[in-house]
Design a protein around this nucleic acid. Structure first.
Lengths: 147, 147
DNA sequence: AATTTGTAGAGAATTATTATCCATAACGAG
DNA sequence: CTCGTTATGGATAATAATTCTCTACAAATT
């Protein structure tokens, strides 16, 4: 069984045990989220869904994403212009955003993040509950095309 | 001479040498930005200015902030809902944002930031041009009020 | 099957920001 | 000091993402 299928079933199970209704719209959105290895935005998800569910509305996408956020199963990457969502790593982690191709990569830096969070808490007496660490620049691919 | 006055004159000089016009509106905005030790938002600045310049429009605030951004004299802290601006430290630095009182503090962590940026560049081959590091939680004051 | 209640859909509302257009004010030239 | 050029400010409309409102329907419960 593929990872995305496992993730799909995990999310479905979560919804079911949380006593939320399993509507076709939700199932489809969850399927897409589990299948996506990237960081889709609400409107990207909406456009994909519209193919199969022409009646689906953007508001429903937002509602369902909010639901999954509440359940802690989706991380909202709240960028200034429009948000993107990560349904596979629903905990804060750094993102590397290419300023040329707009690709969003995950930064696997658990140790470094833990260190810097600890430093902030110690130096400033701040109790950190979540964080958003975004690095903007050029991804390896776009550096090669150098232009 | 106070720091804010020095900063004010520095910004005025920068505008003048950049061959931009020194309008009363710009002078007043710059005065406020230099005087603020915090991280005002566009509308906060607008509300302060309106007292003296009732005709000032919000668009003008944005235009002037954009101008100062271009000159590299103001840092935009692009939060999801509305942006805030820092006219005294116009280079990327971490921010600590209190989820209760909404206060924004600066994180002075130059070494730690340099380290994590370096780690990102090495581990992922990403060339980092700027970053935005936001830590959300409870400031010392709000922790004391524990509620 | 009836009832209650959650949810989807349509579209309006909200909010931050940007663009347009024109009268006016700033500033260098004379 | 005045004038003319031209950037700039103000009003307003446009955009865009997101949220709200309301209604009808669908799902679970009885």
């Amino acid at each position: 069984m593929s990872d995305s299928q496992a993730r799909f079933e995990q999310l479905i199970a979560k919804l079911r045990t949380s006593e939320y209704r399993l509507t076709p719209q939700r199932v489809e959105l969850i399927r897409l989220i589990a299948a996506s290895d990237g960081h889709p935005s609400a409107s990207e998800l909406y456009n994909q869904i519209k193919v199969q569910f022409p009646t689906m509305s953007l508001a429903t996408v937002y509602k369902t994403l909010d639901l999954l956020k509440e359940l802690g199963e989706v991380l909202e990457i709240g960028l200034r212009d429009d948000s993107h969502y990560d349904g596979n790593k629903p905990y804060p982690h750094p993102h590397l955003i290419c300023m040329k191709c707009q690709k969003i990569m995950d930064g696997e830096l658990e140790l470094a993040v833990k260190n810097i969070v600890q430093e902030v808490e110690q130096n400033f007496g701040f109790q950190i509950l979540k964080h958003q660490l975004d690095f903007y620049g050029l991804c390896p691919d776009c550096q090669k095309q150098k232009e």
